[in-house]
Amino acid sequence: MTEGPTGRRERKKAATRQAIADAALQLFLERGYDQVSIRDIAEAADVSTTTLFKHFTGKEALVFDQDQDRESDLIAAVRDRAAGQSILDALRQHVLSTWLPISTHPQRAQFTDLVDSTPALRGYAERMWTRHTDSLSTAIADELGVEHDDLSCAALARFVLEIPALTRSRRDRQAAVEAIFDILTHGWKPPGSPRTTGG
């Protein structure tokens, strides 16, 4: 069975997008974010600036090229979870399986230095996950059969989406992610406080 025109077109589009993102990251790491222009990136990727802007909204988006699918993946983690799996466990699994591999990538140290040393990228990174709060909150509310403006659903969505920023600098990121989800699951206890049992 031969691949249709739409399939070929989408594959070519994805390859072009990846080539642009790879060229941008390489230039940013070599020269520094502020020393690289959109034109530099387009030339390195052998595309026009018009083509570049068809795939990316700006320089920040070029650094975080995997952000495009994050919202749909988050919603799918909630809506398509296994039978009997809680929403929190589904989100825990999603964060561990999607964010941790990024955080252990061989270029992660260089990438983190680039982001941390560039105010525009640092701000974008902090907003990147949390801007999906409304859509994730809505998905959680739908699963629970409550109103979309339910505060507990919005709070849970926001807390989950803060996890990458909260755990980014931790030595053992997996343990940190697990610890935060344990707090969300069992409630917060002051550090060092004895566990109490209901009577």
Results as ranks from 00 to 15, higher is better:
S137D: 01
S137T: 02
S137P: 04
S137W: 01
S137F: 03
T138S: 10
T138M: 10
T138Y: 09
T138F: 11
T138Q: 12
A139T: 03
A139H: 01
I140F: 02
I140N: 04
I140K: 06
A141Y: 00
A141M: 01
A141L: 00
D142M: 05
D142H: 06
E143K: 07
E143Y: 07
E143F: 04
L144Y: 03
L144A: 07
G145S: 04
G145K: 06
G145R: 07
G145Y: 00
G145P: 03
V146T: 01
V146D: 01
V146G: 02
E147C: 02
H148C: 07
H148W: 11
H148F: 10
D149N: 05
D149K: 02
D150Q: 10
D150M: 12
L151K: 11
L151C: 09
C153L: 00
A154C: 13
A154V: 07
A154M: 13
A154L: 14
A154D: 14
A155P: 00
L156A: 00
L156N: 00
L156C: 00
L156G: 02
R158L: 05
R158G: 03
R158W: 04
F159M: 06
F159S: 05
F159I: 05
F159E: 01
F159C: 06
V160D: 03
V160H: 05
V160A: 06
V160M: 06
L161A: 03
E162T: 08
E162V: 07
I163Q: 09
I163Y: 11
I163T: 12
P164A: 14
P164E: 13
A165N: 12
A165S: 15
A165C: 12
L166W: 05
L166F: 06
T167E: 03
T167R: 03
R168F: 15
R168C: 15
S169K: 07
S169D: 15
S169N: 11
S169L: 14
S169G: 11
R170K: 15
R170N: 15
R170V: 14
R171I: 14
R171M: 12
R171Q: 14
D172F: 13
D172P: 15
D172S: 15
D172Q: 15
R173H: 02
R173N: 00
R173F: 02
R173I: 01
Q174R: 15
Q174W: 05
Q174T: 08
Q174M: 08
Q174V: 06
A175N: 13
A176W: 12
A176V: 12
A176I: 11
V177T: 13
E178A: 13
E178V: 14
A179I: 08
A179N: 09
I180P: 06
I180V: 12
I180N: 10
I180S: 08
F181M: 12
F181T: 10
F181C: 10
F181P: 10
F181K: 11
F181H: 10
F181L: 12
